[in-house]
Computed example of a mutant assay.
Amino acid sequence: MRVPFIKMHGLGNDFIVLDARETALPPMTNGLARALADRREGIGCDQLILLEESDSHAFKMRIFNSDGGEVEACGNASRAVALLHGERAQIETAGGAITLEPAEGGASVDMGAPEFAWDKIPLAFAMDTLNMPVSWSDESGDLDAPMAVNVGNPHVVFFTKDTNTVKLGQIGPEIENDPLFTEGINVNVASVVGDNHLRLNVWERGAGLTRACGTGACATAIAAMKRGLVGRSATVSLPGGDLVIEWRDDNSILMTGPATEAYRGSFEWDDFA
């Protein structure tokens, strides 16, 4: 079975998009997603995105990280899908309904409301998620007193003076897989670099270091807002570029930024199944 795909990216965070809304595809498996994501023997991507029909929304977006695991949300992929869809739509994801709206050069995405309760992250036991009484150490020193927030998927956010001094490639896997985080965690290390301006590096659960993470930018901006470090709208600078995050009065998070279609192609399903 020959299957078309679309290669897209948001700030360098890249995706394979498969559209099963009109032509049904065989069931997606973790192994198939991992094989397609492989950068040496597959097409290569950070996430594989599968679009399907939905009974309750315009359509459904499913997200598989490069390790093959299915996850709840992906902000950068949401903008890419908005660009592809071409019009405002409310869509279904495993992390809840989100609203997409294409804009010049990209899109805005209403990511819904953040969750702060310990059992919504989720954590293994109850604690204050605004200032968590936990720490981890790497060569640059201690990473301590982070904040946890769920923005469709779970994140922990550390604030440091200089994000680039933290060896996130080394300590990220340790934090991601700590038993405290019962479903794993995305790890964000951020610094305040100006008025309403944050710099951010992200270790993404199931994908590793990434040039950009939309939900990470949302989680980090919300954490900074909760701690009074920035106002209700902030620019988040990632290695791949900038996103603007607004925490609106209705409690929803609006993420705005670029998305790009790179190329289109096709593959033989059985070659990767």
Score class of each variant (00 low, 15 high):
Ala107Glu: 06
Ala124Leu: 09
Phe158Cys: 03
Phe272His: 10
Ile49Lys: 00
Asn201Lys: 03
Glu101Trp: 10
Val202Trp: 02
Pro179Asn: 13
Glu174Pro: 00
Asp110Pro: 01
Leu209Asp: 06
Leu209Tyr: 06
Asn153Glu: 12
Ser252Asp: 13
Ser266Asp: 15
Phe181Glu: 10
Arg62Pro: 13
Glu72Ile: 00
Asn251Leu: 08
Gly214Ile: 05
Gly75Pro: 02
Leu254Glu: 03
Glu183Trp: 00
Asn164Ser: 15
Thr93Leu: 05
Glu174Asn: 11
Leu130Ile: 06
Ala219Asn: 06
Ala20Ser: 14
His57Gly: 02
Ala207Gln: 04
Thr163Gln: 14
Met8Val: 11
Arg232Thr: 14
Glu261Leu: 15
Ala234Phe: 04
Thr220Ala: 05
Val189Glu: 05
Met255Trp: 02
Glu261Asp: 09
Val202Glu: 04
Leu168Val: 06
Ala223Asp: 10
Gly169Ala: 03
Val109Leu: 01
Gly152Ala: 08
Phe5Pro: 02
Glu261Gln: 14
Glu92His: 05
Val187His: 01
Thr99Gly: 04
Glu174Cys: 09
Ala117Tyr: 13
Ala80Asn: 10
Gly42Gln: 07
Val134Trp: 08
Asn150Pro: 00
Trp136Tyr: 09
Trp247Ala: 11
Gly214Gln: 03
Met28Trp: 13
Ser78Met: 10
Glu246Tyr: 01
Asp249Ser: 03
Met147Leu: 14
Leu238His: 05
Gly152Ser: 08
Arg39Tyr: 02
Lys167Ile: 14
Gly31Tyr: 02
Ala117Asp: 15
Ala20Arg: 04
Glu139Asp: 15
Asn153Pro: 11
Ser135Glu: 13
Ala273Asn: 14
Asp249Tyr: 00
Ala221Val: 05
Ile98Lys: 07
Ser108Asn: 06
Thr93Val: 11
Glu72Cys: 02
Ser108Tyr: 02
Asn150Asp: 10
Val3Thr: 13
Lys167Cys: 12
Trp136Leu: 08
Ile63Arg: 09
Met147Val: 12
Ala37Lys: 04
Gly172Cys: 03
Ala113His: 05
Ile49Ala: 02
Glu22Cys: 07
Glu246Trp: 03
Arg248His: 08
Asn153Gly: 10
Arg211Ser: 12
Val157Phe: 00
Val189Cys: 05
Ala103Pro: 01
Ser233Tyr: 06
Leu18Val: 13
Ala273Gln: 08
Arg248Phe: 08
Gly95His: 03
Asn196Arg: 04
Pro122Tyr: 07
Ser54Phe: 01
Ile98Met: 04
Gly86Leu: 11
Glu70Gln: 15
Met127Lys: 04
Gly194Ala: 07
Met28Ala: 09
Leu18Ser: 11
Leu180Trp: 12
Arg205Gly: 14
Glu176Met: 08
Ala97Arg: 11
Gly241His: 07
Pro173His: 11
Met8Thr: 14
Ile185Ser: 08
Ala262Asp: 13
Ala234His: 01
Ala80Lys: 00
Leu143Ser: 00
Ser140Arg: 02
Gly42Ile: 09
Val236Pro: 05
Leu254Phe: 05
Cys45Glu: 06
